[in-house]
């Protein structure tokens, strides 16, 4: 096997930079991936695929401060894409889990469990919007950028998600207009 010296130096430098980024950001990416997938192993797979894609693009992302947003976008798109491919193969999977309404008047812990279940029941794009808005604390514009949709779509996706979760967790407080972030 032969590799040019120039290429080796360049590749080593790139790998070192990429490894440092991975070490710093991987735990955070895994947490986001977990919220998107709801399952730890699926989250790890998702992060690995996303990092693989980021690795391929590493030299292209000139502004290093944009990398977090870029990899977040890969994460969300890949998650939606994996689901779409699985759906195409199986043609039986749906975007939502079967409707299992959570009874009202649960304890706080039960209600939190119910809330988590409700988040996982959301269609993937709505769930992504909720994770980016409520966990990543992104603005509507930033969320729209990551999802590759308009701000209006982010608003409607988030609104539908809240309404849907409220259906499943009946003692969630009414969302007042000013709470519509």
């Amino acid at each position: 096997m032969e590799t040019t010296g120039v290429e080796l130096v360049s590749r080593d430098a790139r790998d070192a930079e990429f490894t440092a980024y991975m070490a710093a950001r991987q735990p955070s990416l895994l947490r986001t991936a977990y919220l998107l997938t709801g399952e730890r192993h699926a989250a790890e797979d998702l992060v690995q695929v996303a990092l693989g894609k980021l690795y391929l693009s590493w030299d292209k992302v000139q502004k290093r401060e944009l990398i977090d947003g870029y990899v977040r976008r890969i994460l969300v798109n890949e998650h939606n894409s994996l689901w779409r491919r699985a759906w195409k193969r199986n043609e039986t999977t749906t975007s939502e889990l079967p409707d299992q309404s959570v009874p009202a008047h649960e304890s706080h812990a039960e209600r939190n469990d119910a809330l988590w279940v409700a988040v996982q029941r959301l269609p993937r794009k709505q769930r992504a919007a909720v994770v980016l808005r409520y966990y990543e604390d992104l603005s509507e514009a930033e969320t729209a950028e990551v999802l590759g949709v308009s701000v209006g779509t982010v608003k409607s996706q988030t609104s539908r998600a809240i309404a849907s979760m409220r259906e499943h967790v009946r003692d969630l407080p009414q969302l007042s207009p000013e709470e519509e972030r």
């Binding site: 977990y34 730890r40 790890e44 690995q48 990092l51 690795y55």
Partner: peptide, 15 residues
């Protein structure tokens, strides 16, 4: 969540 850290080799394989 505390998953195992993915190494560069695994990332390259994925790439």
């Amino acid at each position: 969540i505390d998953g195992h850290l993915i190494g560069l080799d695994a990332v390259k394989q994925s790439a």
